[in-house]
């Protein structure tokens, strides 16, 4: 190769280079549109705020009720309704664990099917479809549907959470599989391995730690969700919470909320620890 570039002379004085530099505009090149958009957004915000109607009298009444709620929260009553609380809690924990296990088991084949690099086109389309449906429907709507179908109680909650888990784990697992190091898969393919062997030897070792991490994460999401869907009749600690609120027993409600917070924190710390351990 012939070297045509002129050599840079080392004695060049620093004075010949500019000393000022401005970062080029990031998103909008034209100065006019930059200002116009900012002013427009501000005007829109002011107008939008003007349309909100606030009933100050209602707020005053609500303040008082809020105060009682906070007072109940500060003096939680675990004992009076302990029987209800413990039944609800056990129901919720059962619902959470079973739905996470079943949901993860179902979402593994769906997640693999939804990964473009290991699944044929038509399977990919079907699996992505299932994931899209599961993610599009909000838990509460699904819970209302299942409660209508199977009646009040934990079974409806179990189905709801399983359904939601499939969309969540399926999507994230599929994305993780699409992000793997392809050279490892290529090497396994080159040995004459079958598709199942490829999944077992090249894909599984690469995605397993993340799958475990996601499952643990979903476990605590499911627990929190079980409190929410209980309010629409799907059983568990949510139902207990709802009953307490309806009876204006804010001290019992406070106890329920504190228990939920404690369990979520425990699962948060233990899942962090487990995730580090599986790496």
């Amino acid at each position: 190769m012939t070297d045509t570039a002129a050599p840079v002379s080392p004695g060049m004085s620093p004075g010949t280079y500019p000393t000022r530099w401005k970062r080029p505009p990031q998103m909008i090149k034209s100065r006019f549109w930059r200002y116009a958009l900012a002013i427009g957004a501000l005007v829109w915000l002011v107008l939008a705020l003007g349309t909100i109607e606030v009933n100050w009298q209602r707020v005053m009444v609500g303040m008082e009720r809020g105060q009682r709620f906070i007072a109940g929260f500060l003096q939680p009553d675990f004992t009076t309704r302990w029987r209800d609380i413990s039944t609800g809690l056990i129901e919720s924990l059962t619902m959470t664990l079973t739905s996470t296990v079943v949901g993860v088991l179902i979402s593994i084949p769906i997640g693999i099917g939804a990964a473009r690099n290991v699944a044929p086109r038509w399977i990919y389309a079907i699996c992505r479809g299932i994931i899209a449906v599961s993610r599009a429907l909000q838990e509460i709507i699904v819970a209302i549907f299942f409660v209508a179908l199977f009646g009040f109680g934990a079974f409806a909650g179990f189905l709801t959470l399983t359904f939601a888990t499939i969309g969540f784990i399926g999507k994230l697992l599929a994305e993780d599989i699409e992000d793997i190091d392809e050279s490892q898969a290529e090497a396994i393919r080159a040995t004459g391995a079958s598709w199942f062997q490829l999944i077992n030897y090249a894909i599984q070792p690469q995605v397993m730690p993340r799958l475990i991490g996601l499952s643990l994460y979903r476990l605590d999401i499911n627990f929190r969700e079980s409190a929410v869907i209980g309010i629409v009749g799907a059983g568990g600690i949510g139902a207990t919470l709802n009953t307490a609120l309806n009876r204006y027993e804010y001290d019992s409600a406070g106890a329920v909320l504190l228990i939920i917070i404690a369990i979520v924190m425990i699962s948060e710390y233990s899942s962090g620890y487990l995730r580090r351990w599986v790496q």
């Binding site: 490892q184 090497a187 396994i188 004459g192 079958s194 062997q197 077992n200 030897y201 070792p205 690469q206």
Partner: peptide, 27 residues
Amino acid sequence: YALVERLTVMENVLSGRLGYVPFWRSF
């Protein structure tokens, strides 16, 4: 190298036999 990083050295070497053994044996 394209080794499967999270598998042991032995598993990596044995993966050379994948074309010869049925799935359950390799699993």
